[in-house]
Nucleic acid binder design. Sequence first.
DNA 1: ATACTTGCAAATGATTTGCCAGTGT
DNA 2: ACACTGGCAAATCATTTGCAAGTAT
Lengths: 147, 147
Amino acid sequence: MTVAPDAKRLSFEDLDDAVRALREAGLRLSTSRRLVLEALFRTDGPVSAEQLATGLGVELSAVYRNLETFERHGLVRHVHLGHGPGRYMLVGGGEHEYLYCERCGATRAVDPPQLDAVRDRIAEQFGYQARFTHFPIVGTCPACRDN
Amino acid sequence: MTVAPDAKRLSFEDLDDAVRALREAGLRLSTSRRLVLEALFRTDGPVSAEQLATGLGVELSAVYRNLETFERHGLVRHVHLGHGPGRYMLVGGGEHEYLYCERCGATRAVDPPQLDAVRDRIAEQFGYQARFTHFPIVGTCPACRDN
DNA sequence: ATACTTGCAAATGATTTGCCAGTGT
DNA sequence: ACACTGGCAAATCATTTGCAAGTAT
C-alpha cells in the first residue's frame, strides 16, 4: 500500500554505513541493534515496532529502545498513520512526507519539495510552518473517492 | 471512530436543541448523557474524555460510551492533536479544521473554506481529498518559529 | 572490567469491553 | 416491564520503565 517516491537516495547506503554512524555516535553494536538495522534496510516502507520484533525474535521493548536510540541519533524516524502503532523507517538522504487515506489506509510518500506549494500557502495564510513527516496529510485517496 | 461521510449534519443552538436531536435519534437522556452534553456546551475548545469525567464525577468509561454514541449520531466529533488523548467537541453549526503546533501545543481552529486553497492544491497534485478535522495540519506556530 | 543492553515483568496512558445492578421511557 | 445505561473491574493496545543478568568494548 505504501508507494515510495522515485528518488530514493539514502545517506546510509548499506548496513556498514549505518554501523559506522552508530559507532561514531559512541553506541555499541549489540545483536538486537544489528538485527533491527538489517531489518530496516531490508524493509521499504514504514514498519511498526511489533512487526520488527516478531519478525526478528527480539523483545518488543528492546526494539522500542533500539528505535528510540536510533531516532535520537538521527538514523531513524517514525510517522503516525492514522490510529495504530507508529511506523519506523531509516532516515534517508532526504526525508519523506506522507499522505494517508483514512478510508483504506493507503499511504503515499512524497519528496518534501513537492509539498512546498502547499506549505507556502499555509505559511502565508496562518504563519504555521507545516511538516507532514511525523503526522501526514490525512484524507481520502483517489481510489476511495471514486468509491 | 472515523466520522462517516454520510453522517447527518446537525445544528443546535442550546442544550434543548441537542436533547431534541438525541430524542429524535431514539436515544435516552440519562443523567450522565445530560451532564456530558451540558459540559460540552459550556466548554469552548476540544476537551478530553478524562477532563469531562473528572469534572463531572461520571465514570470515564461512561463518558467514552456517551461520546461515542453522540459521535455515531452526529452530535459530537473529536480531533487528535499530536500525542495525548482525543479531544471532543460538539458538532454544532459548522465543522472546524485545525492547525497544531508540535512544539508548544498551540491549536488554531479555522473554518474549512479558509483551507480550500490548500485542499485544492493537494487534490490537484495528488488526487487526495484532504480533511484536517480529525487529524490537524501539524507544524510550528508563528510564535515558536520566531523562537 | 565495567558500562551498556537485553529479557522479562510490571507500569503507564488511552480506550474498550463484560457483567450486573439500576434507570429512563 | 423492558430495554437501555451506568458503575466497576478487567481487558486491550501502544509504549515505557525497573531490575537483574548478560554482553560489547
